[in-house]
Design a binder for these strands. Structure first.
Lengths: 365, 365
DNA sequence: AGAATTTGCGAGAACGTTCTCGCAAATCTT
DNA sequence: AAGATTTGCGAGAACGTTCTCGCAAATTCT
């Protein structure tokens, strides 16, 4: 039995066994064109008999479509985003008949460049990208991608015509602050992770990833609406690294008028607060309150449960795939900017200072 | 300027522009065979000028190798395994010049079958599989894979000649029990997640995934070594679903002689314990002790920190890729069974009943 | 200087598909 | 019954590479 180079039987083997030509075999198996139902049956039997499986690479070559989506993502596994959105993307893609080629950038723009390059060389039909910086995006231009559609996820990029799926982090964070205010919190600290800062800084950097920017602005807006004066707000922007973020938390706590609550921009920062508070025997939800962005199993299961701004991560992934596939099928489709609602999930990590004002370390009666 | 079907310039375009033949252009760009250095320079310039990028699909076709690895995994994102091992695999593969096609099975054997099928059709050069069940594996036989190597990860499969990378869960769990014993724990409960059981059962099911089996046996061995009598052990095997596992925890706690400690087989079960304990206002590390398998950021940052059996997940991923690539390059290589050491990380979730015997609910003085 | 070797390059095949085209046989017209 | 149409199928090209082979020109040998 003649086999192909790769060891697998090819359509020629099927054709030979069925006593027909390559063309007829192909017609029978892919059911197109004119073919005698009898012959078709014969061919299918032959294919079955020798265990024929089509070579999708050859198909892709011929068709000019690989039925593959490239995913360029930040495999930052503490972030509770990567894993959920990846799963969602992989599953949704599969449902639409696409496979996913995944690459990781670790927030590095050079890695992102080369990842996009590689995926294009592998002839993916489209890309889903979580861009690592908003500063640079020439590698996502129409030509670099030679017309292949791209969907941006989690982060906006200015000056690029691409469908974007993000979440209403601004609203969520604004709401979070108002929630805390309604429970009596007046001195608030904000801990924001960003790659634009080396170490830590109390100054807001000029450039922030759009999602981080939205969160920052949301916090600010909420604070301003509640009439929290700037001097009652303490801000810290820092690198996303354990030692640094823990030091930043310490800085926030070690002041004459320490905050009653810390809002963190992501789960890494939240864990830093948890750790430092734990070391100092401070009880979350009592001695110190805490709100973060992104829900997770552990945030819900912990005691106290962490109050979070929850984002519809699975939906983000699904929509990204659906929009991408739609554009692959119709390249005239206009790009969309989609922003999905967030939700504040109140748990027990925010103390009620109205009912228990004595929890404020500055409380005197 | 003539462009290919896909819109990108092809090597023919490069050749035309450099005024040479396809063959020469190819030689110049891939640097093989005999070629005049001057011509090579010329060709490279031409390629640069028109922005030529090779079509890896065509290359793969020709070479019979796609430089792609297929990953079949359970995207169970609460398990702290999927995300870390995936990242490790993607990064390691990239380092060796391979891309990763990822598919998710959700522990479903039919999905696994079809995933393997699809990946083979996409002509991956090899597979990394986290098998969803140990009962079936004909889809991983040499013929189904038509000679493509496969590396099994996290779970053994009997009767299959494939390199396997697992961890010493047995030893880790045995150690965990001894650790608890040394801190005075005598009544122990074990909560094991398994798909072999509908709902929950105190009986050990006949068939367990190998890693779960190892953990179960490790717990048993530890208990037996410490002389913990069967009646002082309570066991619960249950489905990996929140409602069920939480009910299972409740069952374990609601007895005349409740355990002082619960050992859980994975993070989902751990979270269930956390949740139920929290609802009952039981404090982990005091009213109830807890040990689980698999470390995570949150287990470390929580108060109290959760004592865990830590597995070298990144190493698992890296070795899986390295072994797979080695076999792809030399198909005569014998399969290896690799078992990597685990480590017990003691934190504060296990109470010291020797120092504080009064923490045992059955303590009387 | 003539023979032997080396060098550089192009023609063409191959990888495994799909699809266009044409042709013969079968079927349908009137 | 003779033309018109339909049906079923095979030959061959194409997708974009790489690689074998042969051939002419350039170089080295004696």
């Amino acid at each position: 039995m003649p086999k192909s180079k790769t060891g697998r039987p090819t359509i020629v083997d099927v054709a030979d066994r069925a006593g027909v030509s390559r063309a007829t075999a192909s017609r029978a198996l892919s059911s197109y064109g004119r073919i005698n139902p009898e012959t078709a049956k014969l061919v299918r039997a032959a294919a079955e008999a020798i265990g024929y499986r089509p070579n999708e690479l050859a198909r892709a070559m011929r068709a000019g479509k690989s039925k593959t989506i490239g995913l360029v993502i930040i495999a930052d596994f503490t972030n509770a985003f990567f894993d959920r959105v990846t799963k969602s993307i992989v599953d949704s893609a599969r449902g639409l008949g696409y496979q996913v080629l995944i690459t990781n950038t670790d927030e590095d723009i050079a890695a992102e460049r080369s990842a996009v390059e590689t995926l294009i060389e592998k002839q993916v039909d489209g890309l889903i990208v979580v861009p690592s910086t908003s500063a640079v995006h020439d590698h996502l231009s129409n030509e670099s991608l030679n017309g292949k559609p791209v969907v941006l996820v989690d982060r906006r990029l200015n000056g690029i015509r691409a469908t974007t799926v993000i979440t209403e982090d601004f609203v969520g964070c604004e709401l979070a602050v108002r929630h805390a205010y309604s429970l009596g919190h007046r001195r608030m600290a904000f801990l924001v992770a960003t790659a634009s800062v080396k170490g830590m800084s109390t100054e807001r950097p000029a450039m922030l990833i759009s999602s981080v920017e939205d969160r920052t602005n949301g916090f600010l807006q909420g604070a301003s609406e509640c009439g929290i004066k700037p001097k009652a707000q303490s801000w810290m922007f820092c690198e996303d690294a354990p030692e640094i973020s823990e030091a930043a938390v310490a800085k926030l706590l070690d002041t004459a008028k320490p905050p009653t609550i810390i809002f963190t921009s992501n789960n890494d920062m939240c864990l830093a607060v948890l750790k430092v508070a734990g070391n100092r025997r401070m009880i979350i939800g009592q001695d110190l309150s805490l709100v973060t962005v992104d829900d997770s199993q552990w945030a819900a299961a912990m005691v106290p449960g962490i109050t979070v701004v929850s984002r519809p991560v699975e939906l983000v992934g699904r929509l990204a795939v659906e929009k991408l596939v739609a554009q692959m099928q119709d390249s005239t489709l206009a790009p969309e900017k989609i922003s999905l609602p967030t939700e504040l999930i109140a748990r027990q990590s925010v103390a009620n200072l109205i009912l228990r004002p004595e929890l404020d370390p500055l409380f005197k009666d």
